[in-house]
């Protein structure tokens, strides 16, 4: 499996809304904690170490 960097989310605006909504009203610290949990949940779902490594690389590139 390779990392999918093509559009893959149905209803992107809806997803983005939901992502912001879970952070609504949280302090920075709580938001960061939530993000950390989210990353771990998603990473476990992906599972594939090669895909995860590729994703880390994409995210770390500025």
């Amino acid at each position: 499996m390779t990392l999918n960097l093509e559009p893959n989310i149905a209803d992107p605006d809806g997803f983005y809304d939901e992502l912001l909504a879970v952070h609504q009203g949280l302090s920075d610290a709580d938001s960061q904690a939530l993000n950390a949990r989210l990353i771990l949940v998603l990473a476990n779902h992906v599972g594939d170490r090669q895909v995860l490594r590729a994703a880390l690389k994409v995210a770390a590139k500025r």
């Binding site: 960061q32 904690a33 950390a36 949990r37 990353i39 771990l40 949940v41 476990n44």
Partner: peptide
């Protein structure tokens, strides 16, 4: 700070979810 956030995120998730326990 960030590594502590991840550490604590693992501990919080591990209570309810098996997937986090190996971490």
């Amino acid at each position: 700070e960030m590594s502590k956030r991840f550490r604590n995120a693992v501990l919080e998730l591990a209570r309810d979810h098996a997937f986090a326990r190996p971490l």
